[in-house]
Design a protein around this nucleic acid. Sequence first.
RNA 1: GCCCCCAUAGUCUAGCGGCCCAGGACGUCACCCUUUCAAGGUGAAGAUCGCGGGUUCGAAUCCCGCUGGGGGUACCA
Length: 454
Amino acid sequence: MRVRFAPSPTGYLHIGGVRTALFNWLFAKHYGGQFLLRIEDTDEARYVPGAADNLMESLRWIGLNWDEGPDIGGPHAPYVQSQRKEVGIYQPHVERLLAEGKAYMSFTTPEELDQMRADAEARGIKAFRFRGPERDWPLAQQQELAATGKPYTVRLKVPMEGSTSFHDLIRGGGQAITVNNAELYDIVLLKATGMPVYHLAHLVDDHMMGITHVMRSEEWVPSAPYHALLYQAFGWQQPAFAHLPVVLRQDGKGKLSKRKDDVGANRFWERGYLADAMFNYLALQGWSYDDKTEIMTRDEIVERFTIEKVQSSPARWNPDKLRDMNGIYIRKLSTAELTELLLPHLAGAGYVGNPASAEERAYVERLVPLIHERLEELGQAPELLEFFFNDVSYPDPTLLIQKKMDAAGTVTALRAAHEHLQALPEWNEASLEEALRALADELGLKPGQLFGTL
RNA sequence: GCCCCCAUAGUCUAGCGGCCCAGGACGUCACCCUUUCAAGGUGAAGAUCGCGGGUUCGAAUCCCGCUGGGGGUACCA
């Protein structure tokens, strides 16, 4: 079993991407296979420098290690498509398809294509399925025109008739997914720049790298027929497809988006999410073990993860649930562990040095039990502990009013408490508690009501 | 528009023909515990299993239609 995660370095990795990577990783671990990382940077226009490093950092944070990848190499290096293109990996495959008449050089320019699309729409034809006139030309004629220097793309000659089927491990209800070839168009394999398009590059790479299972997000389902056709054209064994459910936005309107949602993987460790909690939560985005188990260790998840249990319906991003789960994981931490994790957040607020001194560390460690059970995000700590580092203004007086009490009763209770406490000869835990309990009794209040106000 | 996928409570999900007049979790509410807040415990409300037809002795589970949602429709991935 060999699987891969093949992101495009167009920005930071968002949480949906991490989920896809995680499922591939889990699959590999469960079956004792390999998990590879490959960078698909064939989109020169959207390329963001540094994105690949950032993305690897995100994967490492959550604990997904790869067996082969751009940074560590492997038997199929390089693992970056632009580099593979330079080495001449894709070109021979394109030429082979050309020679066999399974692809053709298309001289229609992007501008002409736009015009044709606009014309089609004007005539009420919404489905524009491009088939280049050159698909019927002899190769020699294509080459002749190419020799004049006219730019061209290479397109796959998709059959006009018949249908194309493929199986999916997750969707289709056990049946093959079939589309009529008439619904398809001649996809571009090689751009005019000579750079391969995703469809070609990923497929050649998957084949060469011995990928057995392609697990990718659901949005790829519509392009799977092209891939099936390409495998046929090459005469290669097609890997198994498994299209993972998309992760929908919290309101269910559309898939998670980098632009609209605060879901960059890096944002989560900044805000104080634990990698273990994230791992657990993400495993449940489109997969579940049984009807009640949710909190599981990494090992348990690896052991239990199977493709059969992956959902076919979309997952929904639920920050509340994630936060709750993060709280559960935080509560599992020891005081010392939590202190260690909190220090950077407190340093961020300027409450301790960076790194913190031994005294600061010891002080924080005494504070930690106060907020340990309440914390759901590590980033909340500075706010909760502000009291200890800064003078704070008085809070909203209405917060003092306890359950089943009113403002007048609260004021009375506070005055009485003030008097009683002033009268106390000595303040210590026992004397304070005794005095206040007695007072509560006197006022006909439960201790909790009085103590709450104070 | 067309093509494809999907459809159990506010949300995530279990369920793959009888064990389900549907189980768990988040969220909500109540009570208990508690020096507050949390955490924890107990309990409650919340789903005619999207709708309509079939198949079957029996359907949340299989089939068809509809509706709804999502995805795709690029020389982006």
